[in-house]
């Protein structure tokens, strides 16, 4: 049957329902596009035949192939769109720099899109809140205090805070840090928020 390859692409994303980004399936996309090309050419020749020789019994077949073309188109559009949603989410979860392993899962156009999205978001955030701008990825949850107690989950190296003090983020060490400085590190899983 036609369109089996296309549904495979969709299944691949559906299986990872939690928003992980699987590697871009370039090979799958290419196969679907080839199938579409073949379908289109067959249809083209059948349409010409139906027109010139008046063979109207070919019409159901033409329609059949046309449905398959539309279906392939839908699957690919949904595949690419869902990937964009996932990539957009990465900006909010990981911050503006992605781990290399994840970047390898994106195709060149997706990397380009991610960079454009980053730019748009940064421009928007600069336009907010007067001179300084406002980082809207911060304080996703309403803050209750300026400083919070955090615990290091892995070695992260040196870390400078507002007053110029440099602290060493060593595994299992505990610190009392300004909240806005470490929120991102907590989301990335370097630090853990400790509530006593």
């Amino acid at each position: 049957m036609f369109c089996e390859k296309a549904i495979e692409l969709v299944r691949e994303l559906h299986r990872m329902g939690d928003g992980q980004l699987p590697a871009f399936n370039e090979d799958g996309i290419r196969q679907v596009l080839e199938e579409m090309k073949a379908l289109y050419q067959q249809n083209q020749s059948d349409v010409n035949e139906a027109k010139s020789e008046g063979r109207s019994e070919l019409i159901p077949t033409i329609k059949f192939r046309h449905c398959c073309l539309c279906r392939n188109q839908r699957c690919i559009a949904a595949y690419l769109y869902d990937r964009l949603l996932r990539i957009r989410a990465l900006r909010w979860e990981y911050g503006s720099v992605l781990p290399t392993a994840i970047r390898f899962h994106m195709c060149a156009e997706e990397v380009e899109w991610f960079n454009q999205y980053k730019k748009s978001l940064a421009t928007y955030m600069r336009s907010l809140g007067g001179e300084e701008g406002l980082d809207i990825t911060q304080d996703v949850k309403p803050p209750k205090s300026l400083y919070i107690e955090v615990r290091c989950l892995k070695d992260h190296g040196e870390f400078e805070i507002d007053d110029g003090t440099v602290i060493l983020l060593k595994k299992n060490s505990q610190h009392f840090l300004p909240r806005w400085k470490c929120e991102q590190l907590i989301r990335q899983g370097v630090l853990e928020h400790v509530i006593s």
Partner: peptide, 20 residues
């Protein structure tokens, strides 16, 4: 439990690390 103000690691990051 009063833990809703706690900042947590993103689910995406945690799952990704588990897989690795």
């Amino acid at each position: 439990g009063g833990a809703s103000g706690r900042i947590e690691a993103s689910g995406l990051v945690v799952n990704y690390r588990k897989r690795k």
